[in-house]
Design a protein around this nucleic acid. Sequence first.
RNA 1: GGGCGGAUGGCGAAAUUGGCAGACGCGAUAGCCUUAGGAGCUAUUGGGGCAACCCUUGGAGGUUCAAAUCCUCUUCCGCCCACCA
Length: 798
Amino acid sequence: MFYEFKKIEEKWQKKWDKEKAYRSLPDPKRKKFYLLEMFPYPSGKIHMGHVRNYTIGDVASRFKMLQGYNVMHPMGFDAFGQPAENAAIKNKTKPDLWTHKCIKDMEQELKKMGFSYDWEREISTCEPSYYKWNQWIFLKMFERGLAYKKASAVNWCSSCSTTLANEEVIDGACWRCHTKVEQKDLEQWYLKITEYKEKLLDDLTQLNEWPERVIAMQNNWIGKSSGVDIYFRLSNSDKIISVFTTRPDTIFGATYIVLAPEHPLVNGLIKGKPQEKEALKFIDKVAKESKVVRASSDVKKEGIFTGSFAVNPVNNEEVPIWIADYVLMEYGTGAIMAVPTHDQRDFLFAKEHNLPMRIVINPTTYDLQLITMREAYEGDGKQVNSGEFDGLTNTEAKNKIANWMEQKKIGKIQTHWRLRDWLISRQRYWGTPIPIIYCEKCGVVPVPYEDLPVELPKDAPFTGEGGNPLGKVKKFVEVKCSKCKARARRETDTMATFFDSSWYFLRFCSPKFNAGPFDVQDAKYWMTVDQYIGGIEHAILHLLYSRFFTKFFQDIKMIDFSEPFQRLLTQGMVLKDKEVMSKSKGNIVDPDSMIKNYGADALRLFILFAAPPETELEWDERGLEGAFKFLNRVWRIQDNLKEKSDPELLKILHKTIKKVGDDFQEFKFNTAIASLMELTNAIYQSGSDKEVFAKLIIMLSPIIPHFAEEAWQQLGNKESIFKTVWPLVDKKLLIEENVTIVIQVNGKVRTKIDVAVSISEDELRKMVLADERLKPWIENKPIRNFIVVPNKLINLVL
RNA sequence: GGGCGGAUGGCGAAAUUGGCAGACGCGAUAGCCUUAGGAGCUAUUGGGGCAACCCUUGGAGGUUCAAAUCCUCUUCCGCCCACCA
């Protein structure tokens, strides 16, 4: 019999599709398992990254089915976004036509991989039936003050002509097109994610089934830092400059302070001073500089003296006030105290501008000398020149000084966060319209719930020029105020697409529900997502936003949990010649052609076997050929199956069942496949045993579902293999009667002996000492130590 | 600068978590089968050595009866964050 993968795969794909084989319904009597992979952007073609991501998910899903779980495994499309608009301009089509075509193509490609999706739950975020609920959620947030509009300097991508969230700025450039991001003052919509900063941080400790590095990255991003705000009074007035520091132990060494050029007090400080003109020039220059340039670490720190002084509140010393580009208005208080002796940036700046220094912490083993210092001393040590705190270790002094300043009301213990509110306005067409109306009389008016959805007009012009196409559609823009019925103007900004994906996992629970974003009862049954799988690139953006939305839904009492994803797996990238596959590098391997040549099952098998899921995977077509060969080898076993049972083979079978079950649970597919290969080899060696073969097929079925269904049918089964159960381990067969023990002399392997598991240590000792093969090694030498590791190893120490 | 993760044959990788380093596969070599094979089967395959043996997990030390695994130092690579006070 020849393994005709093409025929087999088509046959089963058709059958699964027709029978809706992977439909999932809530069933309180059965234990549920919600398995989710990050849904794709519908580009029209799947790539190897998708193949890997979804194959891992599919194996997990099918394994859970075989274990008897009520599995929900949905798929959908993150369908809003810029490429559709670009395609519309380029190909003279419409974003929705283009997107729908892409979705169609992509569904076909996914089906060709044999993934076990419940297609009845398919969602696409660009449908009004979906984005209506984006608008609903936005309004709920607006009512609670969590969605608000403010003017501020925002990240602007001139190429995409839209704003970007902080999270979307990568290395100072647009995450999508890599154009350098500029600063622009605009009025924009924000979501108040900062309202949840403590919860987002604290709940990270609950996520013990998430990869540590994702937790670390989120931790970092939220960026809680504890310290003290210290109040410096201006020398010639009562005005206060508040500076933030995490090192209150160095306050006695603060010899000057530095403000960000944008700091509101700056103008007053330079007014009338000899430096005024020069300072204004400097401020202007910095303002024009993009954040990218300003943030690049190789640029020299620039600054200028204001001509004014402030008073260090701990010792009443007058210190000069400077402005410098390395101090950022967005962080802390926009002002710092500079301690050149114990902060490297301050040290360089002070040297450059000849500013005073004072040592206030000495290392425990020697004393610092100002003249010999080549760099700041940032380590721990003992306080000096610090008034009543001299002699304390700086770690003790940190708290003591902080408390002392608070008592004297010259400072306040303070926590600052790195996390900013989330900018969601995009000046684009292909996204969810923000449901807001601007009325001259009533101001900002939310669209009433009963008027949702605010639908995207289908006939917007796509020219690629003149900004947002939405703004050019008169009947969209011109509306009546829903409060006073006067002529008003509709918001033309749309929502960032990350809004759409921040709650889609909830929508999957009841994708057609039309009385709310999701059916609370269904969500109660299916949520939380038991296993989530996706790329590490979403470690911050999508995963943080989803956690935020979940907490919001909990607050409005629609769900009773605060974290959406129980267990998270981040799969590694697929590389070709050690580089990420990308169009620009021209090293893309198209999954479709691989399916044509070797079949989806072989592709699935290879991609799981070649590397563990979390590490990078080097593409190697010869490896794929190897997987294909293995399938042929298994296929050929069917030619002469016999009803017989070889006790040795049965032992191997049950060991394999145990190993593969454990490995699947832990996503160690590569080693699971290795043991299945070993079992296959053993079947060949002992003659083909029908019962063992059937078990082998069941274990392989999550990996190569088409192949397994076909073989299962050939074995005479009427029902799908996925209706059967995972084989049970016969524990009796795992027990070994004999065991091989390694004998070492001084830690080197010299021989091995086979003994009964039950052998006593005394008997074992006698046997070893009598062993002829060891004689040359231990002759005439006293044995100092006789180490026995039960059933494993003996080490004779001479 | 901070955080996280790596480094094991020609290649992808295993190693029950301190107990036989290199499972499984790719590639390679030889043979069989075949009209032929880029199919299949069998054997060999970390390095050195005729051999007994010796060496070998980026490098240098250390702990231990025993180290790929633990500790210290060090080199290189990847990812994330970053003038964050």
